[in-house]
Computed example of a mutant assay.
Amino acid sequence: MSTATDEILEKLKSLTLLEASELVKQIEEAFGVSAAAPVGGMMMMGAGPAAAAEPEEVQTEFSVILEEVPADKKIAILKEVRAITGLGLKEAKDLVEAAPKAVKEAIAKEAAEELKKQLEAVGAKIAIK
């Protein structure tokens, strides 16, 4: 880094939160930019074609779909579905027999992946959508 950027960095470190907030407002006004967090977590700088492009929608909610239930694994899958969903025996049985059917909807990707592992471990065929 150059000495100019080193000096600026040191001055920024000494600012209070109120002063930093005022600095952000002044930078936004002076350069016609926004410090708001962009959608998708990417920062778009400049006025090139990339800056004008629509931000991609990132899927944040996933559904765990029970695609197929092998007959010899039905009871184990039914027990796992009951544990995951909290459904009663009849409701869980109806869900398992109605495959393909959503076991859980609108959950985070990590949770969907975990449920997929749990259900596949007992023999179910699972899809995440």
Results as ranks from 00 to 15, higher is better:
Leu15Trp: 06
Ala112Phe: 05
Lys25Thr: 12
Lys13Arg: 10
Ile107Cys: 09
Ala37Leu: 14
Ala53Leu: 13
Lys73Gly: 00
Glu114Ser: 12
Thr60Asn: 06
Val122Pro: 08
Glu22Gly: 03
Val33Gly: 00
Lys129Ile: 03
Val96Phe: 00
Leu115Trp: 02
Leu23Asp: 03
Ala98Thr: 05
Glu113Tyr: 00
Ile75Gly: 08
Ile75Asn: 07
Ile27Ser: 02
Glu67Phe: 05
Thr60Ile: 04
Val69His: 04
Lys129Trp: 04
Lys13Glu: 10
Pro38Leu: 09
Val103Tyr: 04
Gly40Ile: 11
Glu22Trp: 00
Val39Ala: 09
Ala99Glu: 11
Glu110Thr: 15
Ala35Phe: 14
Gly41Asn: 12
Lys117Cys: 02
Val58Leu: 13
Val69Pro: 06
Glu29Pro: 01
Leu78Thr: 11
Lys129Ala: 12
Glu110Asp: 15
Thr60Phe: 05
Ile65Trp: 00
Val58Gln: 14
Ala83Trp: 01
Met42Gly: 07
Thr60Gly: 02
Leu66Asn: 13
Leu87Asn: 11
Val39Gly: 09
Gly88Asp: 05
Gly32Tyr: 08
Glu105Met: 05
Thr85Val: 06
Ala37Asp: 10
Gln118Trp: 02
Gly46Trp: 08
Leu17Arg: 10
Pro70Asp: 00
Ala121Arg: 05
Lys93Ala: 08
Val69Ala: 07
Ala112Asp: 14
Ile27Pro: 06
Ile77Trp: 02
Met43Val: 15
Ala47Lys: 08
Met43Cys: 07
